[in-house]
Design a protein around this nucleic acid. Structure first.
Length: 285
DNA sequence: CGGCAGGTGCGGA
DNA sequence: TCCGCACCTGCC
């Protein structure tokens, strides 16, 4: 259904169902948030959920509006902004959930990532039913800490089992401290994320942008994405990641990653509507 | 079948 | 710092 988003939300041991519906207009937006809970919801908890949603989706920031205003007449971005004005990265997960997702995305194809996540949900997650929807909710890191690497491997996650275990340990023992990470600047934050076992430049970059809402973070461009950006910006796929970074740094200062995200999202949607041949060749399944 | 995948850790130069 | 290599598994 357009204009409505359903998701689960885990806060410690409690699981909620969320429904977010679009109200108002793109330029004067409002969101109607409905919270589904298995017990009566205290106002204090509701406020906490509102704060959490606001932080996760970066709803109290004016960054997206600034970006739209600044580049709405840009030769490269103008028509894309016309179509996607107001779009923001979907970032409804907790830091731990992001870690799990990025690990499942590593070194495999999307289909298998989905299969591995599903298998983890079935064993450790909880299926939440609300508003006529069934959606999986994540588990707590503690649950993975209690299980064995062998048991995880039986779920066909391969060597990622070790990473899941170590990350859960680091989290439960508070070697990963989300509050502290929020207080750091980009360089330090990147360095800290990179210290997490199983997190490298790709996963860290992904989290800087989507989880920490650093719309200018662009320290790493994977080869396959680089080819696509090169094609969009220069009309050929030979530009190096350095060249791309340099270009967007001059053209879209403060919004390097967001600008590329708008461009690539628009491209994928156009590809979906009408096959783009060169893109089809670059995408794997 | 061998090769490889929207990465990362590790060891050695 | 920068390489090359191994790594689970499933699919081509």
């Amino acid at each position: 259904m357009p204009g409505v988003l359903w998701q689960t939300l885990r806060l410690a041991q409690d699981i909620y169902g969320l429904k977010m519906g679009a109200l108002g207009t793109i330029d004067e937006p409002q969101i109607r948030l409905t919270v589904f809970s298995s017990r009566a919801l205290k106002p204090r908890v509701f406020s906490k959920i509102v704060r959490e949603v606001t932080r996760r989706y970066d709803l109290d920031s004016t960054a997206i509006a600034e970006f739209v205003q600044r580049y709405s007449t840009d030769k490269i971005l103008g028509h894309v902004i016309e179509r996607w004005r107001g779009m923001r990265p979907k970032s409804g997960y907790s830091l731990y959930e992001y870690l799990v997702i990025t690990v499942m995305l590593q070194n495999t194809v999307v289909k298998r990532s989905v299969a591995m996540l599903h298998s983890l949900f079935e064993h450790y997650g909880r299926l939440a039913e609300f508003d006529e929807h069934e959606l999986w909710a994540f588990w707590e890191a503690k649950a993975i800490e209690r299980t064995s690497e062998k048991e995880l491997r039986a779920l066909r996650v391969g060597y990622r089992a070790k990473i899941l275990k170590r990350q859960a340990n680091q989290l439960v023992r508070r070697h990963i401290d989300e509050g502290r990470l929020w207080g750091l600047g980009r360089t330090e934050r990147l360095k800290e994320l990179d210290k997490i076992y199983g997190v490298g430049p790709q996963s860290a970059g992904y989290m800087l942008y989507e989880f920490f809402h650093d719309y200018d973070a662009l320290e790493h461009i994977p080869p396959w994405e680089g080819k696509i950006y090169s094609r969009i910006l220069f009309g050929h796929d030979r530009a190096s990641p350095e060249r791309i970074m340099e270009f967007v740094g001059r053209r879209f200062p403060g919004f390097r990653h967001l600008a590329l995200d708008y461009l690539i999202t628009d491209l994928f949607w156009r590809h979906r509507e009408q096959n783009i041949d060169w893109l089809a060749k670059l995408i794997r399944r």
